[in-house]
Computed example of a mutant assay.
Amino acid sequence: MNEKARLLEAIAGKNRGLLATEMDRVRILSDLEQLEDHNPTPQTLEAKELLDGNWRLLYTTSKGILGLDRLPVLQLGQIYQCLRMADGKLYNIAEIIGVPFLEGLVSVIARFEVVSDRRVNVKFERYIIGSQRLLGYRSPNQLIEDIEVGKKFFPLDFNIESQEQQGWLEITYLDEDLRVGRGNEGNVFVLSKEKNI
């Protein structure tokens, strides 16, 4: 079995990390490191055509992301990171599902600056949270279009000014449909490229 298949098998059924035990996390990290050793795109940030688009989160160790699942009667739906390389922007979009009419959405918009062939500095600029229905949410692409034309969302849509809302992301593996990243807080992210969302 190759490294990519081994990692995908290890994260299968772990609900993006929510169901991973400590033993699972150790195994996944080992499989992830082996995959990184076989990165077909060593200078990941130069492969803009591969990076550009919408990516769905398959696995993470980020407590901030996984903590969104702790809301009563609601659970974490799909999570996307949408990269717009030409604009130097990324859109993190987490769908919250549950009781009808209570479906929610949490989105964080950031700018990024390439600082090496694998690393970007990230500055978070805007935070949007609310009901999918009230926000008129249909898809990640539609939300991004609304944001880019200047639409404001209620009840919570605000700019992030704090200097503490910065970090970095290193892309350690990239192929046509899988991306692995490591963040400044020690978190790992495994994402799959989405088609037409």
Rank of each mutant, 00 (worst) to 15 (best):
L57F: 01
E9F: 09
V26A: 13
Q78N: 14
E170S: 12
E125P: 02
G136T: 04
I28T: 04
K123A: 15
E103P: 05
N196G: 10
S131T: 09
V73R: 10
R16P: 02
N159W: 10
I79H: 03
Q142L: 11
R133K: 13
R84M: 13
K4E: 07
L74N: 08
I128F: 00
I96H: 08
Q132H: 11
R16H: 03
R133I: 10
L71E: 14
V120N: 00
I93C: 05
N196Y: 11
E145Q: 13
I171T: 06
R6P: 09
I109Q: 04
L7Q: 04
L7W: 05
Q78L: 14
N54Y: 12
I97K: 07
F101I: 12
E194L: 10
F154K: 14
I160F: 06
P40T: 07
R6E: 15
L19F: 13
G98F: 02
S116F: 01
D87Q: 14
D175H: 13
G181I: 04
K193C: 03
V114W: 03
L51D: 09
I171W: 01
R6I: 15
T41P: 02
I28F: 00
L83Q: 03
K63V: 15
D177I: 12
Q78D: 15
Q165H: 14
L76T: 03
K48E: 15
A110W: 00
R126A: 06
P155T: 06
D157V: 00
A110P: 01
E33C: 09
K123Q: 14
S107K: 08
T60E: 00
G183R: 01
D177K: 11
K151D: 09
L66S: 05
L83Y: 09
L102A: 11
N187W: 06
